[in-house]
């Protein structure tokens, strides 16, 4: 397929996944404060910190609170990674490759964008759970449309790589929220509040039920293991990396290349490392450090991917 089209499909898919995860960040935090535990640490600041864009935020909004963080992550048109700008970019990308998507897929992106765009202009909108419920519906529709209306051809695989790399990154960041949350109050580990917070985290990746089936009780090593290494849950980092690796393999196979691409090799290497790392090692070495490194590796895979498929063939 055309390199430009592959790149647009890849980014379109990443941007939608990014928007979805922002909604998940916000939704879980809103749920958490509804329970109003007395000794809850301020939940809004960590949310800003995990985006890695604190500086932008502080300059524009000052101290984080519910209103400005929701506005920042969901509707800020100046912030290049807000839900609204991500969806707008995804739609622009989709428009550029419309003939490669199913009509349903394009219409779903269009509708999703229009929904958020209209919401951003609606002052009277209740920007709490109901809005985020609807966002979740939209994202589920998007996944369904992608799975059931598109041929699993090269375009689909590029979309899948984008989606999986983004999801792996964001799952790790959701876990990281907890790290920031924990910092000021290490003594709370193991209390009821803590249980509630870890559960909320699991809810954020739709993994609460799956986790409970496996472990029944919340324990830090089990939750961290679930986020990072679970072999079957669709949002665990390991599962996402494995799926991205599968798609890259299929892309190489479709082009009848003799050797795997660099990006494909790097994804496989990461997958192996995840398969053979123990939770205990992660906790001992510092979870935040582990997650940071993981994000660097994911970024490196993204760059290699661009060199392999999007840029390499353009004559100098």
């Amino acid at each position: 397929m055309l390199s430009r089209v592959a790149e647009s499909v890849y980014w379109m898919s990443r941007q939608i996944e990014r928007a979805e995860n922002l909604a998940r960040f916000l939704e879980v935090t809103l749920h958490l404060i509804l329970d109003q535990p007395e000794n809850l640490v301020d939940p809004w600041e960590p949310l800003v910190r995990v985006t890695g864009d604190e500086e932008f935020f502080k300059k524009k909004y000052g101290h984080p609170n519910q209103e400005n963080v929701v506005n920042f992550l969901a509707f800020d048109e100046e912030y290049p990674n807000s839900m609204l700008t991500c969806l707008r970019a995804a739609r622009e990308n989709a428009r550029g490759v419309r003939e490669k998507l199913s009509s349903e897929a394009f219409e779903q992106i269009n509708e999703f964008y229009l929904f958020v765009n209209e919401a951003s202009r609606n002052e009277s909108l209740d920007r709490t759970s109901q809005f985020f419920d609807q966002i979740r519906q939209q994202t589920l529709l998007w996944s369904g449309v992608l799975e059931s209306t598109m041929a699993q051809d090269t375009a689909w695989h590029f979309a899948n790589v984008g989606r999986m790399l983004e999801r792996a990154d964001k799952t790790s960041r959701i876990l990281d929220v907890k790290y920031f949350n924990l910092l000021p109050s290490v003594e709370h580990v193991g209390t009821a509040v803590d249980d509630m917070q870890w559960s909320a985290l699991l809810l954020a990746i739709s993994g609460f039920e799956a986790y409970r089936r496996d472990y029944h009780e919340v324990s830090i090593p089990n939750v961290v293991g679930f986020f990072l290494f679970n072999r079957t849950f669709p949002r665990s980092v390991h599962r996402c990396v494995a799926s991205a690796g599968w798609s890259l393999g299929e892309i190489d196979q479709a082009s009848r290349k003799q050797t795997s691409s660099q990006s494909s090799k790097k994804v496989d290497a990461l997958k192996h490392r995840l398969a053979f790392t123990q939770v205990e090692e992660v906790l001992a070495g510092g979870m935040h450090e582990f997650v940071d490194l993981l994000q660097l590796e994911l970024n490196d895979i993204g760059n290699t991917l661009a060199e392999d498929y999007f840029q390499a063939l353009i004559p100098a």
Binding site: L2, S3, R4, A6, I251, A254, S255, K257, L313
Partner: peptide, 8 residues
């Protein structure tokens, strides 16, 4: 030629 992910 068109530039594709498989070459030209």
């Amino acid at each position: 030629y068109m530039l594709t992910t498989d070459g030209r």
